[in-house]
Every structure is written in structure tokens, then in C-alpha cells.
Design a protein around this nucleic acid. Structure first.
Length: 799
DNA sequence: TTTGGCCGAGTTTTT
DNA sequence: CTCGGCCAAA
């Protein structure tokens, strides 16, 4: 029988013998009578979600409806009423940030009792905790190391090499992502479907997966997927252990349920079986991680999986104004696979969502910069503005512009602190000191800084390590006593080993921050960056200092290393007034007064690749992403699209996103780019030029374009944007363009003035031949730029 | 063993 | 265009 130790002295029933046992009749009676001040601020649905403590509960919480509040209040309620001890509640989140926040808020509600919530954390943190207690049952030791992605790839490369597989043809990365996918679906090597295994190295995928798993066990290591998968295996193979946890977790809460993958779902189902008090909170409309294994199906199927489930819908939004909410709701209503919620607000309609067309992405960045400066001038803090992009590649141009303007900004979600090269190197040193058997860490730093211990030396070490079944460092100790290596590397290696011995010995006597500094100094690692004359070197040294500083918050090196392997994000410290720039994915869970959403163009957003790979499901996920973006805004949402965007260095002509057409006309305002680049009275509204891309012009976008064109025919001088700004050198400006523009706008939209085979001229792409005509969309083979799809209003007749 | 140049690829990302 | 990875020469 495996004993599950109790966490914290105050959390065991014995310490509070005079209070009724949780879940007992007495406890329930007390629950009914207990004063519940924390419930007073909740609305009716929120309250229902909090008070439905027994049985399965699904809370469908739309954006900004108080999801976290319900979760934390529910925990407080369980504790305050005596239904459960803090240690009897399992609360899982996806991110450390969410876990941290929840812990804080629960503590705020119920006081220090929350400190005894040992089972509030991420899936992975909780999986690790369980796994460490029963490691020997799954073939690990309790001090197993958790591999990061780098280690994983390195290990897979070794496996591939050992199997004589060309790792150029079959990259380790690709295998890593396959294995990751299998682990997300809780597939052990033997269960990998034949067809999928065939996709790698002539059907050897599953075999390699098995070999990799074998290596992991030998190294006493687990990757992220294992943290869950191995605890599932533990539960399945040792029912007594499972029963223990089932008994322990009287109440279970899950945040962001729409993001759970199959493995997490299975894990939850195992653990929740006994009491069935499972409360899942999520929003199917915010499921944006399908591509990495999240199963929207988990949330869509909840009532089926847990019969008799109470379903609570939270639809009252406390975040955004009416127009923003209307836009978001209208948009997401185009999705078919959803449970269906309608967000509503009692807030005023507020400002309409704006849609602004730009000639190209450069102008788009400029417009955003101007708008931010204007808002700033009116006293809006920069920290309340965010630019949310679809792909990181969009950030560069925005950043460039902000740098030019001197606008302070912060990029959120880029390479994280613990993922930086210098930090990983430093951590590898520390791992070697604490855990000399950590081969992957040793390999990482054995020749960093360069000390002449290259591939040749490593090969020798590997050969001996494998033959003797011992860790690399141990093998090295043996080899330096032999004549295997040439004198120079032998000497270097001996010195390095001596260093590690010394450091490991001082592990107990020396304070760990001091030891860390010593290691980095004596290994020559700090020196390496001090000598480096590159631009980043100073920053890297600064990061190393930061690393040593953050060590202070932990009692010793091992606990620090455990922390960083699970918590890859460093706590953001600066609260300066800066504009945030991030991807839409990174923005989930955040909110800002003003949100800028550039790049709403077909191909970019919805992203072509998502469409190609996942079809309709992909489109729906993209639409959810758009919905997430809009609902981040409290007061202002500003959309942009550019008619031309550089992709992989080449300029591409683009058309506005279909999502723009899916917005409700009444809540949207089409704005003109300011008239900064006017050329006489020629030129057009960019919006009109680019908008009508569908063969049917009944769309709101088209209607808006029509409304906009009311004043055409003259006097539109000030409306021009940079269309005729001289970018297309040598192009004739004026006349024909204007005529074409009117033709397009006033026609019924079915016929184009061009036919197949016509020679045309485009400002950006130069001369070309029309290859196909679809309404006002032309497919043109440009002489220089190749085949592009453009709107006929962008071209004029050429020779 | 190290370094520079060439080639190819190129969403989204947490743990 | 821009980065990372790999190979060929010092």
C-alpha cells in the first residue's frame, strides 16, 4: 500500500479533530448554515456555479464573465463551509501564471488556510509531484530530471544516429513533435497507430519512440509529456495508488477546460472517478490551441462524458462595451461547432470598432503609431494599449515604427528568460553540480566556453559510458586516467572534472548563490561573455546576474532547479508605462482599454496554413482567435488590414480578411487613413479599392464601401492615402486609376473590365498578363513578380 | 576544433 | 528578408 503523505501540518483532519469530517453530514449541515459573505458580489449564474458543489459541473464562461472569480470563490466556498480541507481540493490550471493568480485570490478570500493548498497547480506540476512520490513504480528514481526541449532534441539526435538514420532527411525536431503529439493523445509506443508511425523514417516512428523512452529511463529523466503520461500509467498499473488519490481529491476544479488534451482528459477522468465532484470551467469559443493537441471536443462532450452534469453559462460580460461585444459575438456566431453562448453587457455601446485599410504593412504600422500617440496625448496610459498580431513576424515592423517614434513598448511572450542560451548554459552547469549523472547537461557545457573538448573527445566519452553503462561524467573520470585522449584534451578534461568535484563538495558548506557565482566564474563562463564583443553580450551578462539574484528566493539549488524546469516564465517585474506587443495566442486571459489588431487579411488571418492543414476546423479556430482578440478590448478595438504585405521578403498583394465582413455593420466604423500622402485629387479610398473581394456584394463590407463612395466623382482629394505616393516609380498616376476605381465601385461587381490575356500594369509588380478573372479579382502573371492575385482596381491597362 | 559562408525554410506555444 | 543549421576550408 502506498502511503500518500499529507501536505502541511494544518491540513490533516487530526489537527482539527473537533471540526466535522469534510463531506460528512455535519459538514453539510454546517455548510448550509455558514455565513457566506464572499458570495455577495456574485451574479445569479456565478453563484449557481459556486454553490453547485456536488457532481459534475461545466461552467461555460465567456470572455470577461468572471471565470477566475467563480473558480476562486468556489474553492473558498468549499473550504469555508467545511466541505473540504484545502488539501482535499485538486485545482489544475495550464499556466503557472494562472496557478499563481488563483492561489493569491483564494488566499485573499479565505486567508492563510489557502497556503495549505498543495494540489493547486499546473497539470505538469501536479503530475511531477505525484510522479516523484511513486517514481520507482514507473522505472524512475524520485530525483529524475525533467528535460527541456533542447535536451529532448539532443537525445533524439543520438537515438537517430545510433539507428543510422539520416537526421537530415528525418530531422530530430520532426520526430520530437510527432512524439509530442502522441504523448498529447496518451499513446504509448505500442499503441501508436500504424499509419502515423509510418510517416517517419520508413515506418520506424513508433520504434524510435520506444527507443527514446528507453533512453529516458536510463538517464533517469522525463520529458514534459511524460509528466502526465507516466502518471497515467502509474494510475493504471497501480490501482491502489490511484484509489489513494481518488479518495484524497474530494473536489476537483479545472481551469481552461477547452485547452485540455486527451492525456489530460484521461488523467482527470481517472482521478475524478471516485467522487465525481469535477468542476470544469472553460469557453469553447476561446479554444485556440487545437494545433498543439487541445481537444475542443473535451468541452463539447462534457455532458455526454459526465451524465447528469450541471451546466452553467456565464454570459454577462463585465469587460467590454456594447459595440465591441456585438462585434465579437457576431463574428463568433459564424462558427458551427460550438455550444453557443451570447455575451451581453449592461455597459454603454461605447466607441464603434474601427476598421482601417492601409496601403502596405509599413503604413499600417505608421497608422497604429499615430493612433497611439493621439490617445497618449489625451491622457491614456500606454500600459492600457496592446497590439495583437497573428504571427510574430508581424512584430518587427511595428517595433521598428515604435522605435522611430520613441514609443516605449514591451514584447510579451518572446523568448522567455529560462529559454535564453546563457541561462540554459548556466543552468546546465548547476545541474551537473547537483546531479553529476545528468548527461545532457554535461554534454551541453562540456565545451562551453570553447575549451577544445569537441566531438572527437565526446565520442570517446560516449563509447565508454555506453559500454560501462555509467554516466558521462563518471566515464570521463575513468578516461582521464588512461591514454585514450591526446594530452591536451585530457588535461583540459581533468581540470574540468576537478572543478566539478570541488563544486559538488562545497554544495553543502557554501551558500547556493555564492556557489552559483563561483561556478560561473571558475568555469570561465562569465569570462566568455565578457570577452564577447557582440551587441547581446552585455544583456546576457545582465541575465546571468539576474539568474543568481533569483536563486536567492529558493532555499537550495535542487529546489531552484525543480522550479525552473517546470516554471519557464520569470515573473515580469517592470510595470512601466509601455505599449504591449504580443501574438493573439499570448493575449488570451489579458485585457486592455485599447486593442490594435493589425493584419486582418486573407492568408495571414485567417492563416492560410491553418486552412490548408485543418480545413473548416482550422478556419473556426482562426475565427475563435479573432474573437479572443476582440474580447481583449475594454473600450476600443481597432482593426487594420494592408493591401500589400511582404512575406518571406517578397511583396504580396492581399485582400481583407473575411472576418471583417463577418462583423455587424452597426458596430463598425470604417475609417480612412489620414491624408498624409495626397497627390492632388487622384487616388482612392484604400478601403474601397481593396474591400469587394467576394463575388457577392451583399456583405456588410461591401455595403459600407457603397456608403463610403457616396461622395465620389470629385472633391475627394483629401481622402487619398499613399496609394499614389510615388512608391510605384514610373507609373502613370491619375486618370485611368480613378476611372477603374469608379467602374469597380459602381458596377454590380460581377464583371471586370479586364479579360484573360489582357496586358496590365501594377504599381508595385509592374507589367503582367491577366491569367484569370473572378469578379473583380484578377490572377495576373507578372513579368517580374510572378503570379499574384490582385484586385482589378489596382492595375491599369498596359501594353 | 573552429570559423565562415552557403543553403533552405519560414504559424500560433505551454509545460 | 532573416535566421539557423550544416559543411567545407583553415
Amino acid at each position: 500500500m502506498t502511503r500518500v503523505p499529507t501536505q502541511g501540518p494544518a491540513s490533516g483532519p487530526d489537527d482539527l479533530a473537533h471540526t466535522p469530517r469534510p463531506g460528512s453530514l455535519a459538514a453539510r449541515a454546517r455548510a448550509a448554515a455558514a455565513p457566506t459573505p464572499y458570495l455577495s458580489g456574485l451574479n445569479a449564474e456565478q453563484r449557481r456555479a459556486v454553490e453547485a458543489t456536488e457532481g459534475p459541473v461545466l461552467v461555460l464562461a465567456g470572455a470577461g464573465t468572471g471565470k477566475t472569480r467563480v473558480l476562486t470563490t468556489r474553492i473558498a466556498h468549499l473550504i469555508a463551509t467545511g466541505l473540504a480541507w484545502p488539501s482535499g481540493i485538486l485545482a489544475v490550471t495550464f499556466t503557472n501564471k494562472a496557478a499563481r493568480e488563483m492561489k493569491e485570490r483564494v488566499a485573499h478570500l479565505v486567508g492563510p488556510a489557502a497556503e495549505g493548498m498543495p494540489w493547486l497547480g499546473t497539470f505538469h506540476a501536479i503530475g511531477t509531484k505525484i510522479l516523484r512520490r511513486h517514481a520507482e513504480l514507473v522505472g524512475l528514481k524520485s530525483d529524475f530530471t525533467i528535460l527541456d526541449v533542447d535536451d529532448q532534441i539532443r537525445l533524439l539526435k543520438q537515438v537517430l544516429q545510433a539507428e543510422n538514420i539520416d537526421d537530415k532527411r528525418w530531422p530530430a525536431r520532426q520526430l520530437a513533435s510527432l512524439i509530442d503529439g502522441w504523448k498529447n493523445r496518451a499513446l504509448q509506443p505500442a499503441k501508436v497507430p500504424h499509419g502515423e508511425a509510418a510517416a517517419f523514417a520508413h515506418g520506424r516512428g513508433a520504434e524510435l519512440y520506444a527507443l527514446y523512452e528507453e533512453r529516458l529511463k536510463i538517464l533517469n529523466a522525463a520529458d514534459f509529456g511524460d509528466l502526465l503520461l507516466e502518471s497515467i500509467r502509474l494510475f493504471q498499473e497501480h490501482p491502489d495508488v490511484l484509489a489513494d488519490y481518488q479518495r484524497r481529491f474530494r473536489y476537483i476544479l479545472v481551469d481552461e477546460y477547452q485547452d485540455t488534451n486527451v492525456a489530460q482528459y484521461l488523467w482527470l477522468r481517472l482521478v475524478a472517478q471516485a467522487h465525481r465532484n469535477l468542476c470544469c470551467v472553460g469557453d469553447d469559443d476561446q479554444s485556440i490551441y487545437g494545433w498543439r493537441g487541445a481537444e475542443v471536443d473535451n468541452i463539447l462532450r462534457f455532458e455526454h462524458d459526465f451524465p447528469g452534469a450541471t451546466v452553467v453559462r456565464l454570459e454577462r460580460n463585465y469587460r467590454s462595451t456594447g459595440h465591441i461585444l456585438a462585434a465579437a459575438s457576431h463574428l463568433i456566431a459564424h462558427n458551427e461547432g460550438r455550444l453557443g453562448k451570447t455575451l451581453r453587457t449592461e455597459d454603454e455601446p461605447g466607441e464603434k470598432v474601427t476598421v482601417t485599410g492601409a496601403w502596405d504593412s509599413e503604413e499600417e504600422a505608421r497608422l497604429i503609431g499615430e493612433e497611439i500617440e493621439a490617445l497618449q496625448g489625451k491622457g491614456h496610459p500606454l500600459s492600457e494599449m496592446a497590439v495583437l498580431v497573428r504571427i510574430s513576424a508581424q512584430m518587427r515592423e511595428i517595433e521598428d515604427r515604435f522605435v522611430q517614434l520613441g514609443l516605449p513598448y514591451r514584447v510579451i511572450g518572446g523568448p522567455r528568460f529560462y529559454e535564453r542560451m546563457e541561462i540554459r548554459d548556466a543552468l546546465a552547469y548547476l545541474r551537473c553540480v547537483v546531479q553529476p549523472a545528468d548527461d545532457l547537461a554535461f554534454e551541453r557545457i562540456v565545451n562551453t566556453p570553447k575549451r577544445g573538448l569537441g566531438d572527437a573527445t565526446l565520442q570517446v566519452l560516449h563509447a565508454h559510458a555506453r559500454a560501462a553503462r555509467i554516466p558521462l561524467m563518471e566515464a570521463a573520470r575513468f578516461i582521464v586516467e588512461t591514454e585514450e585522449l591526446k594530452p591536451k584534451p585530457r588535461r583540459t578534461l581533468r581540470d574540468l572534472l576537478a572543478n566539478f568535484s570541488r563544486w559538488s563538495q562545497s554544495l553543502e558548506a557554501t551558500p547556493h548563490t555564492e556557489l552559483a557565482e563561483t561556478v560561473l566564474e571558475e568555469s570561465g563562463y562569465t569570462e566568455m561573455w565578457q570577452k564577447d564583443r557582440s551587441a547581446e553580450a552585455a544583456g546576457r551578462l545582465e541575465n546571468l546576474k539576474e539568474l543568481v539574484r533569483s536563486l536567492e528566493e529558493f532555499p537550495d539549488l535542487p529546489s531552484f532547479l525543480e522550479h525552473v524546469s517546470l516554471v519557464m516564465d520569470a515573473v515580469e517585474s517592470d510595470s512601466d508605462d509601455r505599449v504591449s506587443i504580443m501574438t493573439l495566442h499570448a493575449a488570451k486571459g489579458l485585457e486592455f482599454d485599447t486593442v490594435f489588431l493589425p493584419g486582418w487579411e486573407e492568408g495571414l488571418f485567417p492563416n492560410q496554413r491553418a486552412l490548408d492543414e485543418s480545413g473548416r476546423a482550422g478556419l473556426e479556430e482562426e475565427r475563435r482567435l479573432a474573437h479572443v482578440g476582440l474580447t481583449r478590448a475594454r473600450r476600443r478595438a481597432k482593426l487594420y488590414f494592408a493591401s500589400n504585405r511582404r512575406i518571406h521578403g517578397l511583396w504580396n498583394s492581399t485582400i481583407p480578411s473575411r472576418f471583417i465582413d463577418e462583423l455587424p455593420e452597426a458596430s463598425v466604423e470604417v475609417t480612412e487613413a489620414p491624408a498624409a500622402y495626397t497627390y492632388g485629387s487622384y487616388g482612392q479610398s484604400r478601403f474601397d479599392m481593396a474591400e469587394p473581394f467576394r463575388s457577392s456584394y451583399a456583405t456588410p463590407g461591401w455595403q459600407r464601401a457603397q456608403a463610403n463612395s457616396a461622395g465620389w466623382g470629385g472633391g475627394r482629394g483629401g481622402q487619398s492615402g499613399s496609394f499614389a505616393s510615388g512608391r510605384g516609380a514610373g507609373a502613370r498616376r491619375g486618370g485611368p486609376l480613378m476611372i477603374e476605381g469608379e467602374l469597380v465601385a459602381k458596377s454590380t461587381g460581377t464583371a471586370s473590365a479586364f479579360g484573360t490575356g489582357d496586358r496590365v500594369f501594377h504599381l508595385k509588380f509592374g507589367p503582367g498578363t491577366v491569367a484569370a478573372v473572378d469578379g473583380n479579382k484578377l490572377t495576373v502573371d507578372f513579368d517580374k513578380a510572378g503570379r499574384k492575385m490582385v484586385l482589378d482596381s489596382f492595375v491599369e491597362r498596359g501594353s
